[in-house]
């Protein structure tokens, strides 16, 4: 499993493993020195990511997911993940 490093502007260092089926996220693991409250939300987030498609409302869907589940993240924002995943998807 190869994790790639991504450092968003003003964010923490992220280490991400991702695989796509078309533009859909097929596998996703997120590591890094960010903060997430509550901490147990990481698995829920990783699971939710598998329902997303980078070409379809990715950022809005992720923002809504975080709000609905009362998850606070410090160190990256949904658009940071979108930027990284788009780069990976477009190769």
């Amino acid at each position: 499993m190869e994790f790639k490093n991504y450092k968003p502007e003003n964010g923490k260092l992220l280490k991400i493993f991702v695989e796509f089926t078309g533009s859909k996220i097929a596998q996703f693991k997120l590591r890094g020195d960010f903060f997430m409250h509550p901490e147990s939300s990481l698995e829920t987030l990783e699971e939710f990511m598998l329902t997303l498609d980078v070409s379809k409302n990715f950022t809005q869907s992720l923002e809504r997911f975080l709000v609905d589940n009362q998850i606070q993240v410090f160190g990256f924002i949904p658009k940071d993940l979108y930027d990284f995943l788009t780069m990976q998807y477009e190769g």
Binding site: F3, K15, L30, R31, G32
Partner: peptide, 9 residues
């Protein structure tokens, strides 16, 4: 390491 970090990473 932080809670969200991978030890070997």
């Amino acid at each position: 390491i932080g809670y969200f970090q991978g030890m070997e990473l």
